[in-house]
């Protein structure tokens, strides 16, 4: 086995690096060529050390894993990057993907997952932990759902009152809310139905059989 893939690890917690070392040392085909505890240090070492895969923590003091990924991706485009984090919030994962990662795994990872992640990424593919994929899918699905605005029960009730030509004051009294809240409801209703006037709104409501 000559062509060992060279791994470099950055994490501000040494015990995590030690734990990873224990596991990766038993995985054939890979060797750890170095590690350090800060992104700045990592950038220095990477200019002198040949590395194939960079395993980096996401949240680190001073320079985060996101920034490190951006810089490494630009300066050393041949290095594949895998993010390693406690968290897997969709937004953070998305940012890391933008920055140039090839994989994202959570820190409570086991040997099997590491083997899969390292092999896939070494072959030029991507690897995302199942929990991460789930988060991403959820946020994607949500994003789609919110495209079409749905009127709430309360809003439909208010449209009915508007139909009866009730003013804000009357509606407020009937629903035991302040006039300003009625005003908020009105604004939300007009925005969601994409109408500007009461006539337009009622037309919208009749056409869609909302009231």
């Amino acid at each position: 086995m000559e062509n060992l893939k060279r791994i470099f690890i950055v994490d501000d917690h040494q015990m995590v690096i030690d734990g990873l070392r224990l596991i990766i040392n038993t995985i054939p085909g890979f060797e750890i060529v170095g590690d350090c505890n800060s992104a700045h240090q990592a950038l220095d070492i990477l200019t002198e050390t040949a590395v194939d895969i960079l395993l980096t923590d996401v949240s680190m003091p001073e320079m985060s894993g996101i920034e490190l990924t951006r810089v490494v991706h630009k300066k050393f485009p041949h290095i594949k990057i895998i993010a390693l984090s406690m968290f897997g919030e969709a937004q953070v994962v998305a940012e890391m993907i933008d920055a140039g990662i090839s994989g994202y795994i959570l820190k409570n990872t086991g040997k099997q997952e590491l083997i899969e992640a390292l092999n896939k990424v070494a072959e030029g593919q991507n690897y995302f932990a199942p929990e991460i994929t789930l988060q991403l899918m959820k946020s994607f699905k949500r994003g789609q759902e919110s495209e079409s605005s749905r009127l709430t029960d309360r809003e439909i009730e208010i449209i009915r009152m508007i139909e009866q030509d009730f003013g804000n004051k009357q509606i407020a009294d009937l629903l035991f809310i302040s006039e300003r809240t009625v005003e908020t409801h009105r604004k939300n209703i007009l925005r969601k139905t994409n109408t500007q006037t009461v006539v337009g709104l009622l037309k919208y409501a009749y056409e869609r059989k909302i009231i």
């Binding site: 917690h13 030690d18 224990l22 406690m86 409570n108 086991g110």
Partner: peptide, 21 residues
């Protein structure tokens, strides 16, 4: 929680993994 307990648990998980193997 993130920097203390979380990292400790992660490292514990990795050590256990290796130990059991």
């Amino acid at each position: 929680l993130h920097d203390g307990v979380g990292q400790l648990l992660s490292a514990t998980r990795m050590n256990l993994d290796t130990l059991f193997e």
